[in-house]
Design a protein around this nucleic acid. Structure first.
Length: 145
DNA sequence: GCCAACGTTGGC
DNA sequence: GCCAACGTTGGC
């Protein structure tokens, strides 16, 4: 299983809106960046990701799961752009702020720090476990600590 | 609201 | 295929 991070501006698409979609999930559309798209093309059903609020909040607020692999983005006729569907899995008991991530030596190589503007990022297993721990979750079972 | 970082576009 | 101009993102 691989791990990812999805960024969204809460006033465009918030964690609350994502959760309201429930099991059905929602396509992660609107991505117009090749690197981000390529990351999505690598995703498999069951991969997990962080849901991060940018601009407002600046924190990881929840855990999502990929529920449909890469397919054409229905919001554009441009065939270059694909996207996956994701569904909400659970809240982060304690949201993990960008500040906290930056302050953590173990996360100094995380894309969130090094590639700040990339909207869909890969996360290593070590980073996944560490961020979950900071947020009060067991990264393997996703049960509260 | 500002501005730095960085991705994309388009002329050559 | 290079690179300057431009647009967008996102932290502050």
């Amino acid at each position: 299983m691989k791990y990812w991070l999805f960024k969204s501006e809460p006033f465009k698409w918030s964690w609350e809106m994502q959760k309201a979609k429930g099991e059905e999930g929602e396509q992660w559309d609107g991505i117009r960046n090749y690197l981000a798209r390529n990351n999505m093309r690598e995703m498999k059903i069951g991969d997990r990701g962080f849901f991060y609020h940018s601009n407002e909040g600046l924190e990881v607020v929840g855990i999502v799961e990929v529920c449909a692999e890469s397919h054409p983005d229905t919001t554009t006729d441009d065939e270059r752009w694909d996207c996956v569907d994701i569904k909400a899995v659970c809240d982060m008991p304690k949201p993990v702020t960008l500040k906290a991530v930056k302050a953590n030596e173990k996360l100094s190589k995380m894309s969130l720090v090094t590639s700040m503007r990339l909207s869909v990022q890969p996360v290593t297993e070590d980073e996944w476990i560490e961020v979950c721990r900071m947020g009060g979750l067991d990264g393997k079972t996703l049960k509260p600590l």
